[in-house]
Design a protein around this nucleic acid. Structure first.
Lengths: 361, 361
DNA sequence: GTGAAAGCGCTAACAG
DNA sequence: CTGTTAGCGCTTTCAC
């Protein structure tokens, strides 16, 4: 008679509880719990009855309670430094979603102000207070941070790290393949002089993307022209001079492949400033399918990296790892998720293909 | 013998608990709790002993447990439709921060796909499942949504709503004043022909910003030129034609004040496409200080709207309201937070001020 | 100023 | 496939 206890000293919350759902559906709270959590061993008719009661009452499980009861109250940290707004938005949304589903306690932290030593210290402190850590780039490349965390035995999942590091789990796309596909697409459209803007050298993903570009060129029998490759740092600003250099070339490229959308947006801006029409005079492709891709005009052809889903997966892996810890089988997984080429309006066949310069005007 | 119960069926979590701290400090768990939560009635010596134990053990309170026990497990919803990535990022960060601090359970929901009827239905459902709702624009202007929520007695806080609505609490900046200050700044810099790009008409903030612009002009004795005012919809794309029209004017403006940063970024883009230098040939200011403001080049002079802090405040207000509900004193607050003019590189004195066109080149 | 008891809402384990 | 029991870690209330 726990729930109806009249002499209870504590005031009950206002929210609908699992017990109310249970009594409406005429089952035990446990059964409701099973339905909510998608356990399979429930008769369909029962499940339906429960679902209906849930619907009717507008029941939303109390996360605090479930997390407490399940003792999977895993406190997991999501640490970031200086990510683009779009990126962080996706990351948060994904992690939040998964955290809610799994009743995990998310600790979001910004290490922007920290130097290398500070990161090491922060990592050490973190290791004592959370059960797992999610590391997006560029932190997932920090030897110091990873070392501290691994040493302390805290499971870590790197997101979008570019490559697998055997010390920690990772959720990523195949940057090499994605980049190769983009380049191949450009080649198929008729482009032979394709400019490339590299990403920040502190991230493996940058390297992988560049390698994909090179591989596609090689496969197509196109010789690499070093002048067509410029260094960028993933920021809009960093790409400005890179694009300027590319377009100032005597034999300017007919297409530019930027290692992320921000830099592709910069390419559009520079092209416009020089009076070029995108995509007629210059095709541009980005990478990530961040919000920048659809903010600019024309909208960017790009590669979709499902950050939100990836964050979700990362949290799942962490939770599974934590729970398995009792059997202290240490497992490191490398999950490669599918990317997707998103075709929009920033790519066309090169003008020279159709009728050289006659179209100009 | 609860905690040391040897025949416990449940495995205990790995984390340090309040009981461990208590026994190390040789006090009851209750006292530890009081120390942690800053209750005053604890002897200093006791407090110190507890603190030390906390330190020593690296104890971090389990949020799930405290929120459950305190029954302040207020579930509060943050609903959004189609916000810019930067905006949502700030919103989430602020709300998350506050939620963690207050042990509230955040329910994040995306109503992008809903039509007006759907919103009404969703609002009705929501009212039954959460203790409070945070509404960013443009949802905070939806009569239907607010009606349903208010009718159900759910406290609602509107963020950045542009004006106070007596039915619901709000946290906002003074859009009118901020806009007036921006315009005055432009005038002080020597601009007299100032183009204005309005925001989406479905938001009061748009109106207030326009009014601020008008007021500053009037105060300065500058006659309003209707041709200088163009409609936008807060998106980058929507501002493109608006800016084109402005710059095609025979007497083109020397400055453009866009109602948000995205549209200001579009203005820069169009200006560049037309071969204008920003700020030499055209000054541009935005509004919000979103990430777009520092992504573009030159960086935007804009008004900082502290979204993250505002979200934090909103959650606080909600929590206070919910807790006060027992005394069923319904309170609606209107909190106006300070904005800030951020001076960056997109504004200069008009070229005609210094030496007409001699500077060109 | 401090402690003991009770229970927040939920779920793991074990029966049936 | 479903119910019963016993807590998860913390804080409320009330006693001392």
């Amino acid at each position: 008679m726990k729930k109806t206890g009249r002499k209870s000293v504590r005031r009950k919350g206002f929210a609908v509880t699992i017990d109310e759902v249970a009594s409406l559906a005429k089952v035990s709270p446990m059964t409701v719990s099973r339905v909510i959590n998608g356990h399979s061993k429930v008769r369909d008719s029962t499940r339906e009855r429960v679902m209906q009661a849930v619907q009717e009452l507008g029941y939303i499980p109390n996360l605090a309670a479930s997390s407490l009861a399940a003792a999977q109250d895993a406190r997991i940290a999501l640490i970031y430094t200086n990510p683009s707004a779009a990126y962080l938005r996706e990351l948060l949304l994904g992690a939040l979603h998964s955290a809610a589903r799994a009743a995990a306690q998310l600790v979001i932290d910004d290490w922007d102000e920290l130097d290398a030593g500070g990161e090491r210290k922060a990592a050490r402190a973190l290791a004592r207070s959370v059960a797992g850590v999610i590391l997006p780039p560029p932190l997932c490349e920090s030897k110091a941070v990873i070392e501290e965390l691994v040493e302390a035995g805290v499971p870590v999942v790197a997101i979008a790290s570019g490559r697998f590091n055997h010390d920690i789990s990772s959720v990523r796309i195949d940057d090499f393949l994605a980049s190769k596909e983009v380049t191949e697409y450009l080649i198929k459209m008729g482009h032979a002089r394709i400019g490339f803007i590299k990403g920040h050298p502190n991230q493996m993903a940058s390297t992988r993307r560049f390698e994909g570009y090179q591989a596609a060129l090689k496969d197509a029998g196109i010789a690499m022209d070093a002048a067509l490759v410029q260094q960028g740092y993933f920021t809009y600003r960093s790409a400005l001079p890179a694009v300027e250099k590319l377009l100032a070339l005597r034999k300017a490229p007919t297409a530019i492949f930027a290692s992320n959308d921000d830099m592709a947006a910069a390419a559009i801006s520079v092209a416009h400033r020089r009076g070029l029409d995108v995509p007629r005079d210059l095709s541009i492709v980005g990478f990530d399918d961040s919000s920048a891709a659809t903010t600019v005009w024309p909208e960017l052809t790009t590669v979709r990296q499902p950050i939100s889903t990836m964050a979700d997966s990362a949290l799942d892996i962490l939770l599974r790892t934590i729970r398995r810890k009792e059997n202290d089988t240490k497992v490191v997984v490398d999950q490669v998720v599918a990317h997707q080429l998103i075709l929009r309006d920033s790519v066309a066949a090169p003008a020279t293909m159709s009728a050289s310069k006659t179209q100009g005007g």
